[in-house]
Amino acid sequence: MNPRFVVAKVTGAIGTLAFVLAFNFFLFRVVDDNPVDNLFRGRNLSPTQIASLEERFGVGDPLALQFVKYVRQTLQGDLGLSIKSSRPVSDVIMDSLWPTVWLVGTATALSMVIGTLLGIHAAWKRGTVTDSSATAFSMITYSMPDFWMAMVLLAAFAINLRWFPTGGFEDAGSTATGLSAFLDQAHHMALPAITLTLGYIGEYMILMRASMLDTVSEDYLQLARAKGLRDTEVRRRHAVPNALLPLVSLSALNFGYVLSGAIAVEAIYSWPGLGRATFNALEGPDFPVLQGLFLLFSASVIVANLLADLLNGYLDPRVRLS
């Protein structure tokens, strides 16, 4: 790949991260000008203790100095202390990171694959019943609030039919290990994963359908057909690869939406991930935790975008060789 392309993309991403870091600092400084006050409110502290804490948190320092300190601490992985639990924010995040990675990863992969296949099919059979029902399905699921879908599915499949547990990461007090633990967790993850998948299939389907229809009218498909290729070969070798290219960068943007959708959905299914941590941090509110989570969400979307750009550059010879 063109090294200048890579350097440009990486620099751009670093620039955006820097902006997010600064934005994050000033946004929370507006509401939380004295973290010591918030953290230790109601505790009996001697003036010297307060002074030493204020020293540590940099209260009273000029804003620029505070910002430098914040950047340095963040880069070292120190995101401050949770107001609620007084634990380091990084610990709170690490505890809930993996459940969300599993959930969002599964939902993203499933919705991407199903939505893309549906979109390919709908576009190839444009104007048929297949097309209009796939489009209608996508539009309707796209219009549903994720959390409402979570509520309806919970009521139907966990409360009434009892096919799935009502929430949590695994059975209470479970000591299972290995495969049975995995199956138990998968059973718990099924409903939240189905909810998020259903919620985002529509997005991919509509995007892929549009991209395919743009491709279908291309001359090189006519040429491929004229060469004597079968319809399925034309689709598989020529239409789909080209139609997938624009989808790469769109999925990265979409990743941010899935992550956002996880907030309410995790809260409803008591899935112990970042979403529920966000939900819990809203009460209080626990600003240091919110600040850390917001930084993490933004950073992961920026990284996802960077990866998508690089992947696009690798896949598309027009970018790779220009």
């Binding site: 941010g256 956002s260 907030i263 966000t278 920026i302």
Partner: peptide, 10 residues
């Protein structure tokens, strides 16, 4: 690029 729902929440 900033995921807008978390931003809106904050």
């Amino acid at each position: 690029v900033i995921p807008f729902l978390p931003l809106a929440i904050v």
